[in-house]
Write a protein that binds this DNA or RNA. Structure first.
Lengths: 345, 345
DNA sequence: CATCATAACTACAACGATTTCGCAAATAAA
DNA sequence: TTTATTTGCGAAATCGTTGTAGTTATGATG
């Protein structure tokens, strides 16, 4: 015997009205007299009536819930984003349903299909590292499902997108390393299919160029699984370490890569920053208590989540089809700490 | 124009059958001939038919989704738990809906009401630090909503519970400090309404007792908001630091407290572990790269999430009312690192 | 041959809310 | 006074699915 909620029917019976009148009264239709409305409202309040969202969902084809597709919530960046999503969503009475891809294309497809089948009202998505085709999103988007991308955005889909200024973040990080006097700056990054990979790479390349540094392709390492495999990270790092001219600094391009590379360097007893400096994109809240404190570029994750959700809900609730889409770029923050400071050698 | 899904009605029309026959064929009723069943199934597959969960939900009063109530997903422990929840839930075709309380009682009540109104099938809950009354859960539980508690469990509600061995973890941590030769061991913990607070305190007290240490109430500091307020943590710490006989070691009882106290000690330039040692409950994945590496007791968060979800789904899907409930206690792991090692002074 | 069982279906109500259409009474306009 | 309009409400269809209660044939039984 499950919790039995008050329905519109109960109210109708109690007040000797028809079901439809109660429904109309509750939503303030002009067809109902003020007096009746007042009665219905007060009775509904007294009985703690809550419209059944499932029934409403069936009727209106909306479920008042939004899906979030991320790689891993066990990751400060994404959990902070979801935090932002939640704050806005709950204010507007949407539920937040989460699905993780673990950087896998197959899981991403499954997650999206599940969401579609459950008639979720809209999606907030950050692409998985292994995703090369975007058809699974395209098809749904074309058929009218609202979606907003953040961080790792899809180039083939014309909709709202929220990112941080990846180019500038990467540029500033690289420039910082240059200004500290590091000579050979490597870059460990994610799959080259991701938008963030491209943008961050560009910032890195531009900074090198601006300061007259040569670009050495061998110093750029891609992790096709976004760092989900420890092996691909350590392989990438090992290749860098075994170069004849070993890099003296590394700029890492994502959350997992930054902490993993940092951790690997430590386990190899490589002195940071004396032997190798490191700065990376990460939203880890404990970067400042690392040993040594880790220099980071942190993204405004919470705001990104909020913004994406506001845009999504606007899409969902818009009466007419939306044709012009925004790309919102938020600033991120450079935190200079010990791991990239040129101390006395 | 939203994505238009295939319904059983479409199938019925196409195969010249009645709607109910199709429904029955799909769920393998014996009233339908094998031949017809085969036809229906193959056509359904061809058209990629997926039953509409909202309609099913309305009909059966089930939504095939479970709610998770935690304080903060932006916290390694909880995000790992949710990870575990998700892994099991998705396997059994349940969606996971998350709500955060941020340690607030009011938010907890709202979250639970929202879940109830949305006819979620069951709840997985870790109590908020500010929660003193449990009526909001009790009422729902009594009316038949399945729930499973984990970590911070409710004493007034008779249902499945999943925790780690808080007593033993605290005991081992405290004993470790004792064995390292620390003489005055303080304890900073969460609200004293929480089950974990009590159990961990007991382990701490027992270890002190077993080793003939005096118990000094002044060395035990409660943070009633579970550490959500930075001020309460720094106040607690400050009180300890200004004691005439200052503690030489601190055992912190929760994730946020551990990293915050650690961080505060560092910002006060107190040498860890020389001046004050620290060990704490936390599931931070980067404790080993802290400066110094932080000794921790880590809980089997992922397994806790899995176990709780399995139990919950068993409750949800059980035909007859369940009357005997399990309390599952998983082992946690002590990670001894620099922050609590008695080095040369 | 009448009766009964069985197999293989179909019709219909229900879940809770919304919405279109219709209808009566009251009021206003002609 | 008659016609038109407004006001306030109710009946019924609908969303997609499921379960119960029929409804046909066909074949078996006495």
């Amino acid at each position: 015997m499950k919790f039995e909620a008050v329905t519109i029917k109960d109210i109708a019976k109690a007040l000797n009205l028809s079901i439809s009148s109660v429904s109309k009264a509750l939503r303030g239709s002009h067809e109902i007299s003020e007096e009746t409305k007042k009665q219905v409202h007060s009775y509904a309040r007294k009985m703690n009536y809550k419209p059944n969202p499932i029934a409403q969902g069936l009727r209106k084809g909306k479920s008042k819930s939004i899906g979030v597709v991320v790689t891993n919530i066990d990751n400060n960046f994404f959990s902070q984003v979801i935090n932002g999503v939640e704050s806005v969503a709950h204010k507007k009475e949407y539920n937040v349903v989460i699905s993780q891809t673990h950087e896998s294309y197959d899981r991403e497809v499954l997650a999206v299909q599940n969401f579609a089948a459950r008639s979720i009202d809209g999606l907030i998505i950050s692409l998985s590292a292994e995703t090369k085709k975007q058809d699974h999103f395209k098809k749904l988007h074309d058929s009218g499902l609202p979606m907003v991308f953040f961080d790792r955005v899809a180039n083939t889909i014309n909709t709202h997108k929220v990112t941080s200024n990846n180019f500038l973040g990467a540029y500033n990080a690289t420039r910082h390393l240059i200004q500290q006097g590091y000579k050979r700056i490597a870059h460990i990054t994610s799959a080259n299919t991701l938008s963030i990979t491209f943008e961050r790479l560009e910032g890195y390349v531009k900074a090198l160029k601006d300061y007259g540094y040569p670009l050495d392709e061998a110093c750029i390492k891609y992790c096709d699984h976004g760092g989900m495999l420890q092996s691909e990270i350590s392989a990438a790092l090992q290749q860098l370490l075994s170069m004849t001219k070993m890099p003296d600094a590394i700029f890492t391009a994502s959350d997992r890569l930054s902490t993993s590379v940092f951790s690997l360097l430590k386990s190899k007893h490589i002195k940071i920053p004396q032997q190798i400096a490191i700065i990376g994109f990460t939203n880890s809240i404990s970067a400042d208590i690392f040993d040594p404190p880790l220099s980071t570029i942190s993204q405004p994750a919470y705001e990104m989540g909020q913004t994406a959700t506001e845009l999504l809900i606007r899409l969902i609730e818009s009466r007419r089809p939306v044709t012009s889409f925004e790309k919102i770029v938020l600033d991120n923050t450079l935190h200079i700490r010990e791991s990239s400071r040129r101390g006395e050698m």
